[in-house]
Amino acid sequence: MFAYVVRRLFIGVILLIVMSLVTFMLFFLMPQDPARVACGKNCSIAQIKQTEKALGYDKPALTQWVDFLQGVVVGREYPEDKTLREKAPELISDCAAPCLGYSRVNQVTVASEIKEAFPVSLSLAVLAFLMWIIGGVLFGVIAAVTKGTVIDRGIVALSLVFYAFPTFFIGLFLLKFIAIKWGLVDVPSYTTIAEGGIGGWLSNLFLPSLTLALFFMAGYVRMTRAFVLESMTEDYIRTARAKGLKRGPVLFKHTMRAALTPLVTMAGLDFAGLMGGAIITESVFNFNGLGKLVVDANVSYDLPTLIGLVVLLGAFVIVANIIVDVLYAVIDPRVRVA
């Protein structure tokens, strides 16, 4: 098992390196000159040249990629160019160990941008994840055991509704009615636990998490229902019933364990994807999370931030994949490697 995890991690790191290379190359294929964007609108040609040197854009793309990797491992210093550093030593800014680049647009390192935005996205992801897993599995199982009845049809129809409406619609709808019109909760704005305590943190996160959760829950209800129904037709469920087991153990011990296995994969990957930011939800509620960072970086053509975010999101997904595979082996003895 240990060897398996190590092997997977090793492959994961290689995958990440390859992914960062591809991202680099893709961004440099774009027609715009990154130095010109970074410098600003009213730059002279000389200033652009200087920016280019300062950020290292004058080097070949491959060298820049190597510099980037080096920065991630040991950190790096800006400006890139030696002569510039000698000329103005007071402008040297240090980018410590996991250096993902320097955003000229925002005048900060990418790592510090992420550090600020990540807790927002993580809080949102965790809370939404809990809501949709609990709700999705619960309603999915209820629908499965009441298959064909009004309850089942109601749950399926409702989940279809939530699945069909776009997230921004549901988000705005909740914001407008629950927070603004009826005043049931305050208009949410992100508060850390340190600032508002757990209560404040939770109440501000509630609406955005619910918005996210409703969308995912709809899918999970339908999947849980399908998996449970499929699992009920398995031969070993018939065996369990033939033993004389009560309904409860047949459903919870035998049916659910088999039915929920495929959900683990989906849940792991969905969660990892969400940690990289919920673009629409964060924009609707004006939360400064990773999703909003992506949008802003896109608008201002902030290349270092974009590359840093893509690599980070890739790392999340790769790690989540490994965790899911390990979980699988825990759940299903057949997958365990000798």
């Binding site: 031969d235 070993y236 035998h254 299903d332 057949r334």
Partner: peptide, 11 residues
């Protein structure tokens, strides 16, 4: 049952 592999719970 006929097929003992599928008639036993794999987990």
């Amino acid at each position: 049952f006929q097929d003992p592999l599928s008639a036993m719970h794999p987990y």
